[in-house]
């Protein structure tokens, strides 16, 4: 598999993820990063949803590859993964869908999955196929820097961003280690726990984000538990991006029968929600401007 080109001065070009954050920064905007679970309830639906989301306010998109035992996820994403697996979704199908999406949109696409899915497929094959499909980055919640060695080397060679997570429990020493191997952005876990909607933002979030920032110049995106536009708006000033997953999937879960008959209606509802989130995180800028 060929590498992305290196420019005239031999300097690595900024990845599509990095470029997106730079462009948003120039506009004074924050990045909205929705998460969707691929194949929930079908790959056709996911593809249509992602296409529309990219035009409804999503600046980057996380494509969840379902796994049978997602230990970092709460009930909402667990159920979404189970629905997708029960519907027979396979990694091959997801890679084809990603390639098809890349032919139609320029939004950075990031895979999120657990390490066994990658290990079983083969690290090199996974990286090669992801690159070929036009994927820009990969998030692996159960792959801390200590275990990432071989996969990280392959990702670096392909110039894909392996995105690491920082948690409120991470010590300064660990944050330094995470920052030293991070690319693209750092995923800041806003809660001590698993994914899933929460009622309010953790009071210590600002302190945690500042702590992460003292170790890196990379953009920071905050995820886990952000359940509505109000919470997204509270988080946005602290970071460069906001990740929203479970509260999007809840809107799929609540409309499963309707998706069968009129998928467009549900996609529209989710897009409206995402547009609202995007407005919410840029509220500060609008209110000034």
């Amino acid at each position: 598999m060929c590498k992305r080109s290196v420019n005239y001065w031999g300097v690595k070009p900024v990845s599509r993820i990095g470029q997106t954050f730079q462009e948003l920064k120039a506009k004074g905007e924050k990045a909205l990063i929705p998460y969707v679970s691929c194949g929930d309830p079908s790959l056709e639906f996911t593809e249509q949803l992602v296409l529309k989301l990219s035009k409804a306010g999503a600046d980057l998109l996380e494509l969840g590859i379902p796994y049978s035992d997602p230990v970092a996820d709460g009930p909402t994403i667990q159920k979404a993964s189970q629905r997708a697996l029960a519907a027979g979704v396979k990694l091959e199908g997801i890679l084809r869908m990603a390639a098809s999406l890349r032919g139609k949109i320029q939004t950075p696409l990031i895979f999120m999955t657990y390490f066994n899915v990658i290990y079983r497929y083969g690290l090199k094959q996974f990286v090669d196929r992801s690159l070929y499909a036009g994927i820009d980055g990969v998030i692996v919640p159960d792959l801390p820097p200590e275990e990432a060695g071989a996969f990280k080397r392959l990702m670096d060679e392909a110039e894909l961003d392996l995105i690491f997570l920082a948690a409120p429990t991470s010590t300064g020493e660990r944050l330094q280690k995470i920052a030293s191997c991070a690319r693209g952005f750092i995923y800041c876990v806003s809660v001590t726990g698993v994914t899933g909607s929460r009622e309010k933002i953790n009071a210590d979030l600002a302190t945690f984000i500042e702590k992460v920032r003292s170790h890196t110049d990379l953009p920071l995106a905050v995820g886990f538990g952000i359940a509505n536009p109000l919470m997204a708006r509270q988080v946005a000033p602290l970071a460069e991006g906001v990740i929203v997953g479970s509260s999007i999937i809840e809107r799929i879960e609540a409309n499963l029968p309707l998706i069968n008959e009129q998928p467009d209606v549900v996609i529209e509802e989710i897009c409206a929600y995402v547009t609202e989130l995007k407005k919410a995180i840029n509220f500060t800028k609008e209110s000034i401007g």
Partner: peptide, 21 residues
Amino acid sequence: ANGYFGEFGGRYVPEILLPAL
């Protein structure tokens, strides 16, 4: 080091748990 038996073992867990481990 890091709890490997040959190639087996390791610590494939979310960052949130690593400091506790």
